[in-house]
Amino acid sequence: MSAVSRSLHQVSGRRRRTDKVMRSMLLAATLIALVPLVLVVYFLIKQGIGSWAGSFFSTDPNGNFFGSPGGIKSAIFGSLEMIGLATLIAIPIGIGVALYLVEYGKQSPFANVVRYFIDVMTGVPSIMFGLFIFIVLVVAKVGGSSYAAWKGSIAVSLLMLPVVTRSAEVVLLLVPDSLREAALALGAPRWRVVARVVLPTALPGLVTGSLLAVARGLGETAPLLFTAGATFVTTANLNQQMNSLPLQIYTDITNPRQAVIDRAWGAALALVAIILILNLVARTVSRRSRMA
């Protein structure tokens, strides 16, 4: 490439200038693209760190009009409980569908249809999953209560499912066929090949995809809006209404009290911190053991 830059001396001044201008514009655009991330993180820390004091993580929010508005304990616990259940649903199903696509369906017409609609699912607005669960589970009062945490979990898992499946499919495709063939040639039945060879080989990639899906699900507000209900109380009962970080932020923003808005910033900082850490862990896992 250094040869190229040397040859630049021979091109005309106008072309050289255009090249310079365009290259700096591309650089400028890249820097502009990074500005929002820097600004968001800066304001989150500036506005949010102040509320991270004292009992912020150990008290539930309260609806009091005066005094301390309380912390975000129920929001954090609620988020973790609901994303936990959503993960338990989405990851086995997501990886199962990916296994079908890679090990059995391959390029058959049915597999391609499944692949296509999984892609369609990635494009479905997240609020639509909330609406769907509302129609099917909330209105019908399935499980006795109308709004319930587990319904929110299902809505979030529907959203995580295509992310898990698509990333798992790519990783499973990377497992060399020679490994499968070797195991089959030794007389192993197909299910053993999947369980003992394919899945362990693909494990780091599957973990990465799953963590990214969890990180995505954790930040979702829209699917929880009319499924998980609204409450400030910490609860371990998934059949009850449950608070969550995104919902807490969403309701706090519109509050006229500065103390409540400060709580929204504090909760947002906590949420973004968790999500960024999950993202970085996911990418470290995948870099540690890249197959190819």
């Binding site: 968001v40 930040g219 995104p246 932020i249 969403y250 973004v272």
Partner: peptide, 9 residues
């Protein structure tokens, strides 16, 4: 990775 509710905030 930044949740949309945070962009809204």
């Amino acid at each position: 990775a930044v949740p949309s509710v945070v962009y809204g905030l």
